[in-house]
């Protein structure tokens, strides 16, 4: 099984999913990402799914849960690059993903993270 690369861009953890993940691989990615966030005290997480051709209920749930868990650790996250076919299919499947932050691509995702972090810090200092 191929390990999913976990990169750092500034203080953000960036995870490009480049291969078709089976359920065990998806679970492992979740664990690895949370471990990386803990170890690096990252301030943001971007999961790039632009190379993922389908998101079924299992992977969808992993993405939602990972994002929730990161949030509980104090880290905002954004899912980027979801293909339009994948989005349409997810909606038809009935998976609720409305609490997920999303952006078109990595650049937009990093920008969105910056904004989310600013609002968060604004709240704390103000």
């Amino acid at each position: 099984m191929v390990d999913i690369p976990i990169l750092m861009i500034g203080k953000n953890v960036v995870v490009p999913i480049q291969t078709e993940l089976n359920d065990i691989g998806a679970k492992k990615m979740q664990e690895d990402v949370l471990y990386k966030i803990e170890k690096t005290t990252a301030s943001g997480l971007v999961i790039d799914v632009s190379a993922v051709s389908i998101i079924d209920s299992f992977l969808g749930r992993i993405l939602v849960d990972t994002s929730k868990m990161a949030k509980l650790m104090g880290t905002e996250s954004v899912i980027v690059g979801m293909k339009k076919e994948v989005v349409l299919t997810l909606i038809q499947l009935g998976l609720r993903m409305e609490n997920l932050n999303t952006a078109l691509n990595l650049e937009d995702g990093l920008n969105l993270l910056r904004k989310l972090q600013e609002t968060l810090h604004g709240k704390i200092s103000g």
Binding site: S53, I54, I55, D56, F58, E85, L88, T89, Q92, L93
Partner: peptide, 17 residues
């Protein structure tokens, strides 16, 4: 079409899982 493929392959994933 790509949408048809995505839709059906997603179902295949659910049913084989």
């Amino acid at each position: 079409s790509l949408l048809d493929q995505t839709r059906v392959v997603t179902a295949v994933s659910e049913l084989s899982r």
